[in-house]
């Protein structure tokens, strides 16, 4: 039973990650390969605050969102002046750097040894110490993220985002401040990714840089693309399927070391196949055309 709950919690975390990335990639057309970096920033901020200052969970989550958002602005404001694949490269570089800071700044982040012993969170006196409670917490946060994303994409602001994705020049000609919209959505995506990071840190109670690599970024991006860029429910579905996949492989008798590689091979191959035959993913609406 605990195993099942564990899988559900992971699915919840990946839903938060992929839905927020979909806002950036699928709805606004900004191909970011740095989502795991913001995910990691959230995790490290929460872990460090909890370990060093013993500050409460809710405060930590707010700090993580704000810091990650600020970092998003810092990266986004210069990077978003360039377009398409050059933007992707800038985010790729940011991802590599963030990892390297986590890995090398040993005195602060613990380096490859990571940060163990993150305490269990308490919310208004209620200790989140069982799988059930964690799942409820992830569920609540996931619903909030989904609701916010849903509101955004269906608002007039969401319409502007889609117009930027489809034709930036046209959006400008309609008087839209394309640059500021892009930065805003990038910052929101970064903030939401950090929420997932906070949850991950508290849930596993140990973090190290290997959870926030470029491969993780590509994995989250794959969830978005496989489910379908520009469709929130596609991301929800794909997150569930891709998280269950390695478990299913293990269930079929594959050793877990190979199952981890197999999972990556499967989503990597899916990425290539989809680009060849169905770039909009299973139920998406954006096919990366300009």
């Amino acid at each position: 039973m605990e195993y099942l709950l564990h899988i559900l919690i992971l699915i919840g975390i990946y839903i938060i990650l992929s839905v927020s990335l979909n806002l950036v990639v699928g709805y606004s057309g900004l191909l970011s390969i740095a989502h795991a970096a913001f995910y990691g920033v959230g995790a490290y901020v929460a872990a460090l605050l909890a370990l060093k200052l013993h500050s409460p969970f809710l405060l930590n989550i707010i700090c993580a969102v704000i810091l990650s958002g600020l970092l998003g602005a810092l990266v986004g404001i210069p990077s978003l002046r360039i377009r398409d694949d050059y933007f992707a490269i800038a985010t790729f570089a940011f991802q590599v750097i963030t990892f390297s800071v986590m890995n090398n700044w040993v005195s602060f982040t613990g380096g490859p040894m990571g940060l163990p012993g993150i305490p269990q969170p308490t919310i208004f006196g209620l200790e989140i110490n069982t799988h059930y409670r964690f799942l409820s917490l992830v569920f609540v946060l996931g619903v909030i993220v989904l609701w916010v994303c849903h509101k955004i994409v269906n608002s007039p602001f969401g319409r502007v985002l889609k117009s930027i994705r489809e034709d930036e020049i046209f959006a400008q000609a309609q008087g839209k401040n394309v640059a500021s919209c892009k930065v805003l959505v990038f910052v929101i995506g970064a903030g939401m990714a950090s929420v997932a990071g906070v949850m991950y840190a508290y849930y596993i109670s140990f973090i190290d840089p290997t959870s926030f690599t470029i491969m993780e970024s590509i994995f989250i991006l794959s969830i978005v693309i496989i489910g379908g860029a520009g469709n929130i429910w596609g991301s929800v579905l794909a997150a569930a399927v891709l998280v269950i996949l390695p478990e299913a492989l293990r269930f079929l008798g594959m050793p877990s070391s190979i199952a981890a590689n197999m999972r990556q091979i499967i989503y990597g191959a899916l990425l290539v196949i989809l680009m060849l035959f169905r770039p909009q993913g299973f139920i998406g609406e954006y096919a990366f055309k300009k």
């Binding site: 191909l31 694949d85 693309i225 590689n261 990597g268 990425l271 680009m275």
Partner: peptide, 22 residues
């Protein structure tokens, strides 16, 4: 588009790196 090609190349990278590590 160049974005599609970029994504495909990411996929190729992931597959081959995992084959190497397997």
């Amino acid at each position: 588009s160049s974005l599609i090609l970029l994504l495909a190349s990411l996929g190729v990278y992931v597959v081959l790196q995992n084959i190497v590590s397997m």
